[in-house]
Amino acid sequence: MIKIIVGRLLQLIPVLWIILTLTFFMSKEVPGGPFSAERQATPEVIARLNAYYGLDKPLWEQYLGYLGKFVRFDLGPSYTYQSESVNEVIARSFPISLQIGSLAFCIASVLGITAGVIAAANKNKLWDYFPMSLSMLGICLPTFVLGPILALFFGLVLKLAPVSGWYGLNYVPFHPMIMPAVTLGLFYSAYIARLTRGGMLDILNQDFIRTARAKGVRAHEIILKHALRGGLLPVVAFLGPAFAGLLSGSFIVEKVFNVPGIGQEFIKSVFNRDYPLVLGTVAFFGVLIVVFNLASDILQALMDPKSRK
């Protein structure tokens, strides 16, 4: 087991290298530079700015220079935030996305799994159709529609949570994360509910469940004790990448609620042609995805003796 984990973590190195190389050369290919602006600076000034950041050097030299710094965990200066390094930008924006993502993950898991289990246990009855119709609705409603609706209802009508921002006037810890986390959580719970239902139905049709029923085991015991472990396998496979996705911040949700998370930084860095910030956030997301895929693989192996080697 430990061997497998170490092996997978070692895979991170070539994966990161490939991601960085592709991103590096692709970002330089995109037209427009970090210093183009509506009021254009003279070519001489642009040249001096390029020289300051080493953008006048040959591309391969820039590339090697970047990799050299990267292995020392130095992600370089941000062009947009002139007094901050990329490390600092990630350090200040990631904790915010982490908080929102974690809460959203809990909401999505609890809500999604509960709804899925209830639906599977009541196959083709009212309590199957009702949660599954809701989840279909959830899948179809994009977050940029769901977000403002929730903000209107909970923020304006019920006044339960702020509709925008993070710090600032009357800042209460955890308060600003409610709306974005609920929006994201509801969205993901819709998927999880459908996956749970499918996984559970698969297991509930198997022989050992029929045997248990024949022996007179009570219905809720069958579900909780015997079926759940196997039924959740497809969900766990989904949760790993989903958690990584949630942690890396949703650009749309962060925009709708004006949350200064890492998702916004990533998208804006691309718009601003802030090359070091683009590369830094892409590498960071790469690590997150590899690590959480690994975590979900380990969890699956623990739950399913068949996949253990």
Binding site: P148, A151, L152, G155, L156, P162, V163, S164, G165, G168, K255, V256, F257, N258
Partner: peptide, 12 residues
Amino acid sequence: YSIENLNTQELA
């Protein structure tokens, strides 16, 4: 506040 989205501004 730096709220880029005009609808969010209005909501706030």
